[in-house]
Amino acid sequence: MTAAIEVQGLGVRFRRNRRGRRSLKDLFAGASRRSRPGEFWALRDVSFTVASGEAIGVVGRNGQGKSTLLRLVAGVLLPDEGTVTVNGGVAPLIELTGGFVGDLTVRENVRLTAGLHGMPKSEIARRYHDMIAFAELEDFQDTPYKHLSNGMKVRLAFSVVSQLEEPIMLVDEVLAVGDKTFRDKCYARIDELLADGRTLFFVSHNERDLRRFCTRGLYLNKGALVLDAPIGEVLDRYNADSVAR
């Protein structure tokens, strides 16, 4: 089966001070791979492959590298060691409200955001009313985005991104937001995308959601991949470790 995501020997490090990642000066100077004072490895020596059409859940406590891994797969971060190969475009259901422009209207933001993700103008026009209806914002199309409630912003963002035709979905806790009615709509939409053969890479603390959508799991602890196994086995190991702490 074709690999959708291939990760080999992946490592990324950060600074503990306000500068965050290494500076450009460090990079161009060929800084040592060994950690310097004030640096730590958020991920180290992580390897796995995700098959096309597979649904993978990533688990671990806060600060163990889950969201960092998601951002590396999305191409937002670059690794310090190893490689990340993504075979196909991604629909990033992460930081949902990021990238929207406050002074632009809902209508303008839909067109801008979908366009930036590569959706052709003709396709945006065809899907526009479906996106607005899913977000339940028919009466707010000409309202500036900054005047929407947080719930409205999340509904709009999920609606737009979930309409992308990309074969790989990257999801980070998005289902933890919104009311139950909207979450049920999100569940149904993700079920549709999985039935259509999309690949799911899902970071979450919600065991119910992980068991519902995923067949396989990755358990991260202290930046290392502790277990790669069926999702039930991974969750049992994670829960057992959590009780033992």
Rank of each mutant, 00 (worst) to 15 (best):
R61C: 10
R44I: 04
V84E: 12
L70F: 10
P79H: 08
F100A: 06
V90R: 00
V101K: 09
V73K: 02
G99D: 03
G99T: 05
T97P: 03
T68S: 10
R44L: 14
K66S: 12
R61Y: 07
P92H: 01
E81W: 07
A51G: 15
V59I: 12
F100W: 03
D80H: 13
R44T: 08
N62M: 11
L69C: 11
A91Y: 07
R44W: 13
I94M: 12
A74W: 08
V101M: 11
G82W: 09
V86Q: 06
V76H: 03
G65N: 06
G89F: 04
G82A: 12
L93Q: 01
T83I: 10
P79S: 11
V84L: 12
G57S: 08
R61F: 07
S67N: 04
D45Y: 10
T85K: 14
V101R: 10
G60T: 04
E81Y: 08
E95S: 09
G82I: 10
E95K: 03
V73H: 01
F100V: 01
V101N: 13
G75S: 11
G88D: 07
L70T: 04
G63Q: 08
I94G: 02
L72Y: 03
V86K: 05
V46Y: 00
V46Q: 04
V50E: 03
A91G: 09
V73E: 02
G98P: 00
G65Q: 01
L78N: 13
G82V: 10
S67T: 15
N87G: 00
T49S: 14
A51D: 14
A74L: 11
V58H: 02
G60L: 06
F100H: 09
L43F: 07
L96C: 03
V84A: 13
Q64A: 13
L77I: 10
N87K: 12
V59M: 05
F48I: 09
F48G: 05
L77F: 15
L77D: 14
E81Q: 15
G57T: 06
L78A: 15
A55D: 01
G82R: 10
K66A: 12
G98C: 01
K66H: 13
A91P: 03
G99F: 01
T68Y: 01
A51S: 14
T83H: 12
